[in-house]
Design a protein around this nucleic acid. Structure first.
Lengths: 116, 116
DNA sequence: GTAAATACATAGTTTTGTGATATATTGTTA
DNA sequence: TAACAATATATCACAAAACTATGTATTTAC
């Protein structure tokens, strides 16, 4: 991630949202899709992704299914029912939060003098 | 903060932006303004604010000026020249990042079947 | 056959916000 | 006037979350 700190708290939401949109996905696929959809600006590292996926699974929001592609294991993830609900909450909260921040940092500059 | 993790990385930008808008401000004033402007949703804690202010000052982006109001010390902060430049970069980066996240989490749902 | 890409995983570190706590002044109100 | 809330700053211990680095192994491309 080039933005480093900024992503905090948004990664799980992004993962949930992609799973909602695409149905089953595996880890590496998620990193590639985020990379592509973000115009190469958001590059999720393995050290961030896998712990995040494991936590979502431990929380019962996603379930994994191991599939062998030749000799290579691939772990596909799907949303659970609670996961689908959590996705909506999570996405809505993030959008609301970003709107609030947007308002905070883009309000008019010094309206005191020279308001057009 | 209710949003907890989400604020990560955005606090310094918010502080810089408020200083850009209002000119000199003191810590407590910043917390109150953020609280008000965010509709009571973003509540900056002292344990977050003061370390953030001290770091910005250590980095030379803001300068403090102690003013006595009666017997109480009040520390006013102002942007330095590098601080003004950093504010622009910081705000622009945050807006761009939020736009990217917005695109990521609001793209159309399953366009494969049933595209209106 | 060697390097790059695919695909998973974890340990240790850093960053950053929170909770708790401390100090002290000022304003309100019972 | 005593008690409490609000104002105002500050720090420490803790937790959460992402990163770096490292490791393993297969598959693909040159």
């Amino acid at each position: 991630m080039n933005h480093t700190e900024l992503l905090k708290g948004t990664l799980s939401t992004i993962i949930l949202r992609l799973l909602e949109e695409k149905g089953r996905m595996y880890g590496y696929e998620i990193t590639q899709m985020v990379k592509e959809k973000s115009g190469e600006t958001i590059l999720i590292k393995e050290g961030s992704l896998y712990p995040a996926l494991h936590k979502l699974e431990a929380d019962g929001l996603i379930v994994s299914e191991e599939v062998f592609i030749g000799k290579r294991v691939r772990k596909y993830y799907n949303l659970t029912k609670p996961g689908k609900k959590a996705t909506r909450t999570s996405v809505d909260e993030l959008l609301a939060f970003m709107q609030t921040i947007h308002n905070l940092i883009t309000s008019e500059l010094n309206p005191a003098h020279g308001a057009a």
